[in-house]
Amino acid sequence: MIVQATNVSRVFPMPAGPVTAVHDLTLTIAQGEHTAIRGPSGCGKSTLLHMLGCVDAPTSGTLLFDGQDIAALSDRERSLLRLNHIGFVFQRFFLLPMLTAAENVELPQSEAGVERETRRRRSRELLDYVGLGPRADHRPSQLSGGEMQRVAIARALANRPRLLLADEPTGELDEATGQQIAALLDRVNADGTALVIVTHDHALAERATRVLTMKDGRIERETRR
């Protein structure tokens, strides 16, 4: 078990009254699992994903990562946990524009204290893995959307995370490019990384072995294949 969420809720206090984005939800993510989360806009998918990724903490309930209670960790410890065990991929890529593709992939490794030569080698390998070896020295502005997303995936994999979280990874891409990204994510999962993908894209969700459908902050339906 990588993540174990028990009765977690996330309430945002707002001036007009509290907003419950995730409501009393229980969920586990197992090693190597491939999960998709679907549901209408505003149902709490991203909020749940952020809690699974230890970026956000539940307002009630317990969330264990690798058996560790997230609530008991300091910001520094949570940061380290994200750095070493969790990879994020977003709809809008979020690459650092002033760094090249290779440098973007090197960044989490250098933060984790990986030695220069080793991280250079790993960055090249990862860029080859996502099919962007020849574009290693290009900056994000010189890459297409699909290419940027592939760099973002390579970056997310840099420290060999056990869990890769993706929020609408194909949201800004055309269908053909979206399929390339989907295939790449499949390969990441096949190579052993647990995958949780939030998506509106039906085809992308269908590739998962487990599909959760959310509504109003709750899991309404779960299908396994």
């Binding site: 990724g53 970026v55 910001d75 520094r76 940061s79 380290l80 946990l81 994200r82 750095l83 070493n84 969790i86 994020f88 979020f94 690459l95 650092l96 524009p97 960044l107 989490p108 933060e111 970056r155």
Partner: peptide, 13 residues
């Protein structure tokens, strides 16, 4: 945005 990304990647404050 850069700062947000760095935080997400796991750089402590």
């Amino acid at each position: 945005e850069t700062v947000g990304v760095l935080r997400l990647i796991g750089l402590p404050v």
